[in-house]
């Protein structure tokens, strides 16, 4: 225990300083009818996130783990990962949606209480990425649930993920 305490004292703060707040548009790209803007105003500063791996290779999961880790510390912007979709406001989907995960993804989305948002993280969730036309694929995330924001990359950098979350929370 003393060793741990000395390590904490010696290490100090690991989190990198926040990049400047992104110039917040009234609504992120993809919003055509103003609902997402209204949703974000309702959530204002607090977004609980439920993550669903719909068929990913885990590369995006590693990056999301890094985004919520001490270095990038996405929690400081008001985002938090939760276990149950009933506790969540936003659904982040990684990976191409495989056939077996299509219905569970729909149900997870239905279980989230309104107002809710969906973020597709990674190229596979946006447009099937390298798995387009594979035999087990049901589609991109946008084919199963309505997607409100996207984070491109294979995998996207943690900074990009954090920037997307900051657009949702507004902090």
């Amino acid at each position: 225990m003393l060793r741990l305490w000395r390590m904490i004292r010696g290490t100090g703060r690991i989190a990198e300083p926040s990049p400047p707040r992104p110039a917040r548009a009234a609504a992120p790209r993809g919003d055509t009818d103003g609902n997402v803007g209204a949703t974000m105003r309702a959530l204002r500063g607090s977004v609980q996130i439920r993550h669903v791996d719909a068929g990913s290779c885990n590369g995006c999961e590693v990056e999301i783990g890094a985004a919520f880790g001490p270095v990038y510390d996405a929690e400081r912007y008001g985002a938090r990962l939760v276990a149950s979709p009933r506790h969540a406001d936003a659904l982040i989907v990684t990976g191409v949606v495989t056939r077996n995960m299509a219905e569970p993804l729909r149900r997870t989305h239905a279980a989230i209480p309104a107002p809710k948002l969906v973020v597709a993280i990674g190229d596979c969730a946006r447009n099937c990425g390298v798995f387009a036309d594979a035999y087990g694929v049901a589609g991109a995330a946008g084919d199963i649930v309505p997607v409100d924001a996207e984070v491109p990359g294979c995998p996207p950098r943690p900074e990009a993920i954090v920037a997307a979350l900051r657009e949702l929370t507004g902090r």
């Binding site: 100090g12 204002r44 500063g45 400081r76």
Partner: peptide, 20 residues
């Protein structure tokens, strides 16, 4: 958060969570 080396969301975050 501070002991883990992070910055943390601030002491007012639970209020924001509850309000939402």
């Amino acid at each position: 958060a501070k002991l883990e080396g992070r910055k943390g969301p601030g002491v007012g975050q639970p209020w924001r969570d509850l309000r939402k």
